[in-house]
Design a binder for these strands. Sequence first.
DNA 1: TATTATAGCGAACGATAGGTCACTTGTCAA
DNA 2: TTGACAAGTGACCTATCGTTCGCTATAATA
Lengths: 200, 200
Amino acid sequence: MAKDTKERILDEALRQFSQKGYDGTNIRELTASLGLVKSSMYKHYKSKEEIWNSLLDRMIVYYNERFGSAENLPPVPDTLDELVAMTMRMVDITVHDERIVMTRKLLSIEQYRDDRARQLATKHFLTGLTEMFTYIFDGMMNKGLLRNDDPKMLAFAYTAPVSSLIHLCDREPGKAAEAISQIKAFSRHFIKTYGSDRNE
Amino acid sequence: MAKDTKERILDEALRQFSQKGYDGTNIRELTASLGLVKSSMYKHYKSKEEIWNSLLDRMIVYYNERFGSAENLPPVPDTLDELVAMTMRMVDITVHDERIVMTRKLLSIEQYRDDRARQLATKHFLTGLTEMFTYIFDGMMNKGLLRNDDPKMLAFAYTAPVSSLIHLCDREPGKAAEAISQIKAFSRHFIKTYGSDRNE
DNA sequence: TATTATAGCGAACGATAGGTCACTTGTCAA
DNA sequence: TTGACAAGTGACCTATCGTTCGCTATAATA
């Protein structure tokens, strides 16, 4: 039971931190959302800051489990259309998985206050995706699906616009549907531009 | 003199809000940085929240003065190299102008807490740049510099990666030089990809 | 010169924050 | 059955927050 509450505190902290920021969140409200009084929290964490650090620890573990190992890399698509489809599957997950959305919001909010948040933000928002698609595009070039080019540059040119629209979804959920269809349009435009000639 | 202090309070508020967020900033420190005691602030603003709102007001005015009117649009480049050069000039300004940097940081931090900050964030980070380069690319297509394509799509494909590297500069100033050279590499890659054939 | 508004000051206010502590309850092992 | 420990409670502490108020000094106005 103890561990359960400890995890639930982290879950609720992620929720409230991602809405109101670390400074804007107070322990009384946080614990009240879990049906506890604030002093109970100190049975599990010795301070508010320890919640924050544990939350970052968990985020790092979660990220590494999900994207850290080479085995978790997605399969290299066999067609250009499959690249679009795979992209849209990934976007759907990342935009609708509440925990992932809250994580992005939290990193946006706290990236200038906490050094580990800063590093995680760069990984989540930029380098992580670029590395993944560098691998994918390299594979697709070897398969003759994409014209020969710098796979890293292409990965960056592909993921950065997608990422910026994902941020838009986070910021303005009402525009999510439109943003997602923009991502699809962009992805199709991308394969039209960079797709190998023999596939046209 | 009154108006001077009133402006200086906004300047310092921008500085501290952009580092520590609205909730993380307290009036005592803010006014102390100006050589005042906290109670003096209330001669100029009736509350902390009024500082926040006035700051947003000023940001909106500033943005509209700078990017709002069609007259302020940059001239359409006459060569592809000139597009790269113009981009780098704009990047240099936006990355090194302290006020602009602080404004971006502030919007990143507060975009999920305040509705006007949310709207401004979308404008600053996405739609503003896209609109500007839609105009530029449309002009360049008419001049035969860029191959015929959807100028809006190209503008998005161009500005989003640049924008993501500008965010990187904000987040990790130590990597700014590298990020800026990446922008240049990306810009060159872009004109190689989309430049009209007759210019190669 | 007399008056008045302005800008700054220092003391104090109530509210709320994070955190501590003695105490109770329930569970499980010895 | 008993003892120990984990988990939760409520009262309380101190610090700090935003804010108010009465006072003073200055400078412009009448």
